[in-house]
Design a protein around this nucleic acid. Structure first.
Lengths: 299, 299
DNA sequence: TATTTTCTTTGACTAAAGTCAAAGAAATAT
DNA sequence: ATATTTCTTTGACTTTAGTCAAAGAAAATA
């Protein structure tokens, strides 16, 4: 990893200072209006679709007790309704009442007004320029914040990721997808396998599995990225991470197969140095097979 | 002014939410460390050069009483030294002691570490991309936040601007500049003249003057932008604002002259539709003379 | 099935942040 | 020179924000 240049640091900090002290503060002020900022944020975060207390706690970084009391206060004001989660009765779900919804809509109206006021000082071309610049910045900041970690293939997060992966491709494959075709946890750990998860702010947003298929040859499977984290270049990062794991485990090559429907994936594999090879497995979902020779371990 | 597109608003709000909730919060946390955030911010804002309480109050948006007490607390901790302003003894100046400086340096170290940590998740090319994007965003956000206002030519801000202008060009003209050559307040107001000031966050960062030189002809003078607000495109905005004032006052043309040293200014005038004309005044500092014909008032 | 872990609530606090008004000293404006 | 405005301090409060530990109920894991 290249050392970070002082100029890059300076530019980012400068922007950070400017943005948080000016826009951020203004925004908070508008969001809050007649209400403590904490409550206003909480209402906003519950949003029209509701959310579990667990999620709210995570997203806003609040103490459990503090959150519990704030929710109670909002409930007493008739803005929020709390119910037990349908499938996990430890969890409680918070939803906005109609009065709560009205208030959140008003928050949104004000915040939009703020953004409009800001943009109205620019001409159309400058507005486009600004929109593009913030989109680029957001994409890169998100990507920078996502970490790819090696986890136990049997862990909760790993299982959740595979379940999400299976559900996702079950929708995308015309013939559906049978979860029995997933790799087993024991294959994805230890000396011969690996399970990588990409985390964004504590939540898994992607995964990938390495397993052994024959001596000296690994197989990469189930590379998946959560819809909310697509188009950031994350799949490529996971793929590179799995290759590194394969090198560490002494593999000379990795293979993978892919479904005919996943054309973007195929393009990525080629761009990452994979070459198409003949069928090497019996996977009924596969239409293309790839291989990449790996460098030897340096250590 | 064109209406603001919903997509632009959405993009800006989305970024705002992401940035303030993620980076902003992190930054505060790092800045604070063992110290209440308010105090930490105050120390940071005083900075190595010191600042008057008045300025700090404005920049941080604090209540006067609250600030006074916080400053006293920092003084008691040996981090800040307070003295009376040399020329205006209503004002008090806060400066960091050496212990305060050490603490601010430590804050900076931590904040740099945060930015470095962020950037280290990107490759060099992505870092460049991010740096460019945030620079563009900052420039446009600043520009959007600057308002150009018509003020009384005799007001405090107007006089301060002209003084700053005079000091600035006195440095830039090889022969210096005599403030007696400035327009008089009464020329820059009422039916025949105008004084525009560009304000950024309440502080004047630029100005421009319109006065009458003969029937139907106005003259634009003293278009100036504070060094900290240059390269934003502000001079052009002031110039356009003055032309609008001239149209409102029924002028058919505006003229202006410029010093040989100010080549960028000449380029801007040409780009804004001015054409060079023969000498029309006795201004000893002028080397080029320009004119622009104005459209008639529509109302 | 027994044990852990997860999630929420409650009690008992503390610290930080902020508000408002009165008053005095200096500078500016008229 | 008088009136007005600006700047800061002080007193007297209120709200918000946050912390920590204990405990009970469900779910997940071994």
């Amino acid at each position: 990893m290249e050392p970070v240049s002082a100029n890059h640091v300076k530019a980012l900090r400068r922007f950070n200072r400017y943005f948080t002290r000016r826009i951020g503060v203004l925004d908070d002020h508008y969001l809050g209006q007649d209400r403590p900022l904490g409550e206003a944020r909480l209402l906003f975060e519950i949003g029209p679709d509701g959310a579990s207390l667990r999620e709210l706690r995570g997203r806003l970084g609040l103490d459990a007790g503090y959150l519990s009391r704030m929710i109670r206060a909002l409930e007493a004001q008739g803005l929020v309704r709390v119910s037990v989660h349908p499938t996990d009765s430890r969890l409680r779900m918070a939803e906005l009442t109609s009065a709560g919804l009205v208030e959140v809509k008003e928050q949104n109206r004000r915040a939009n007004g703020l953004a409009e006021g800001l943009l109205s000082g620019l001409d159309t071309r400058q507005r486009d320029e600004l929109t593009t610049a913030v989109a680029v910045a957001e994409r890169l900041l998100r990507l920078a914040a996502i970490t790819v970690e090696l986890v136990d293939g049997a862990s909760r997060d790993a299982r959740d990721c595979l379940a999400a992966y299976a559900a996702d491709i079950d929708e995308r494959f015309p013939e559906g997808f049978d979860p029995a075709a997933l790799v087993q946890p024991h294959e994805a750990s230890g000396d011969s396998g690996a399970f990588l998860i990409a985390y964004e702010e504590g939540r898994p947003v992607g995964c990938g599995v390495l397993r052994r298929i024959e001596p000296g040859v690994g197989e990469i499977r189930h590379v998946w990225v959560h819809p909310a984290a697509r188009r950031l270049g994350l799949a490529r990062r996971i793929l590179l991470g799995l290759e590194r794991q394969a090198v560490e485990r002494g593999y000379e090559a990795v293979r993978l197969d892919t479904h005919a429907a996943l054309t973007e994936a195929q393009a990525m594999y080629r761009a990452c140095g994979y070459t198409e090879i003949p069928r090497y497995d019996e996977n009924v979902y596969a239409a293309h097979w790839f291989e990449k020779r790996l460098p030897h371990t340096s250590d």
